[in-house]
Design a protein around this nucleic acid. Structure first.
Lengths: 122, 122
DNA sequence: TCCTTACATCGATGAACGTCGATATTGCGC
DNA sequence: GCGCAATATCGACGTTCATCGATGTAAGGA
């Protein structure tokens, strides 16, 4: 059933956001779309150096160890974390640069700068 | 089976991000975690005034009308869009302020400002 | 080599989600 | 009120996902 394009508004520009790029961004946002994972990021950000090993993350989250491991994997696959082995322990570190990239994708940088300026002037 | 907190790293600060706030933010990111919805936002952002009615959104997305309606509802429920009726047509408009808020929640504003400055100086 | 600790992977289960055809609702013009 | 056009809601189906117990793997110490 074809939808008539009556004259309600200007037709929308096509392909502003490429489907491939949309898939990629959506994957990133989906990685952020879980409260446990957000708290993981928050915990890591609160650490000096933005890093911690797994054994200190499972208790404050209230999730089982396999679940935490799963979430860490999701975030690492999305390149929002990087892992490094040190002896028995596995360290996970925040990638702030990736979060900044995501911000820039969400809001045009110029508008973001304006918003930050507005906020700073209050 | 209790996990021993051996001396691998400094213990993580607790409750940096409140569970309630984490749920709220996760809901927002989940709303952004679909390629169709991201393209919807992109299409709207490309429109003068950042608004459009539904009939012009369904074709470029390649999704059926009920699906588009569903996505618009998800985004509206997340307060990322606002709707306004004009006669037969329903107009959806971007809420840039909400996207800016989300950015600020992702990256501490000071670090964001630094990142933008770095980028501007290239 | 054996045991223990730290972490990852597997497999299963239940819930949430994307999609769309069919149908309902709302508003406009006649 | 009737009919049509625009949009929302419903219902169902298949997929994806979060969760966790059980098990596998890898590293260090005795």
């Amino acid at each position: 059933m074809p939808i008539r394009k009556s004259s309600c508004c200007a037709p929308v520009l096509k392909g502003q956001l490429e489907p491939d790029r949309a898939d990629e961004l959506a994957g990133l946002f989906r990685a952020l779309g879980d409260p446990g994972r957000l708290r993981l990021l928050s915990f890591l950000a609160a650490q000096p150096g933005g890093e911690a090993c797994v054994c200190h993350l499972t208790e404050p989250l209230g999730l089982a160890q396999p679940t935490v491991s799963h979430h860490l994997k999701v975030l690492t696959d999305a390149n929002l974390l990087e892992r490094e082995r040190r002896g028995t322990w596995m360290y996970y570190r925040l990638r702030l640069d990736r979060l900044e990239e995501l911000c820039a994708a969400l809001v045009p940088p110029r508008k973001l700068a304006n918003a930050l300026q507005r906020r700073a002037s209050l």
